[in-house]
Amino acid sequence: MELTQFIQNVLNGVSIGSVYAIFALGYTLIFSILGIINFAHGAVFTLGAYFTYTLAVGQFGINGLLKNVDLFPNGSPLGSSVPGFVLALLIGSVLAGLVGVVIERLAFRPLRSRGADPLLALVSSLGVALVLVNLIQYLVGAEIYSFPADVYGNLKPALVLHVGEKLVVIRTVQIIIFVVSMIMLIILGYLISRTKIGKALRAVAENPGTSSLLGISVDRYVLYTFFLSGFLGGLAGTLVATSFGIAGPYFGVTYGLKGLAVIVLGGLGSIPGAVVGGIVIGLAEAFVPAEYSAYKEAVAFALLFVILLVRPQGLLGRALVQKV
């Protein structure tokens, strides 16, 4: 493979992978603190995008309860400038975080306080996802919504680099997603390892029983976790939506399955692992030669299968100790 092609594939891989990574950050957070997979994450991701859209554009389509509603006939104050959009983004993500909190109270806490089988949490979160996705469709229909092209200001749509005589390209919005996922990773890492809240979260992750004996309110910290996970999910959803549009209420749910492969590959419970896993899968998909592009979808899962057999704790997870 010649150099240009190789570099282009790497750029493509990072481009695709950063979407997976940013989705997986919130996904793995819940697993790292609570040991459960929250299937409603895809729905919260989607909701975040819709919330920000409502604040920044606020024009709905011809289906659903809110059909033909136009909140800002003269354009939204938050949608016409970059700082405005960032504000809408933050508010939308906070709203998504609050939805995460509500989900925790209603669909997870009763199971947790009973010490129930974690699998029931899976089914419960599935039910929540079903409710949220169909609620979105009921309110605003299944049509496509998208953000104005200039939400990030007057950025060029793609970065073109010269490698020798040829060109390699990458879309600037994907660079933004990559950068934001890195920033979020650093912030999250700092939060978990350097702050008091982070210490409490790590204690809860290790042993909720002892933590609560030591005076840590497990319930409260679980709430913080869900808020943070929802915030990250909503943030991710909005960013991805600025790149690809909101393709209907199911737009986030379709990442849920591949997100599983990402967080297992990276290491269940490892936060840097989510980003590494995402990028690795993105790279693997980008390097699939054209003749086999039909099987690109299966690449992530083939990787998943192999890593489970060879190194189940994933790339960055801690080795599992067999407890007798």
Partner: peptide, 18 residues
């Protein structure tokens, strides 16, 4: 070139660069 994708795909970077 003939490139394939899925209706659920959103990122087409590989196909486009090809």
């Amino acid at each position: 070139t003939v490139q394939k994708f899925q209706t659920t795909d959103t990122d087409f970077t590989t196909q486009v660069t090809a």
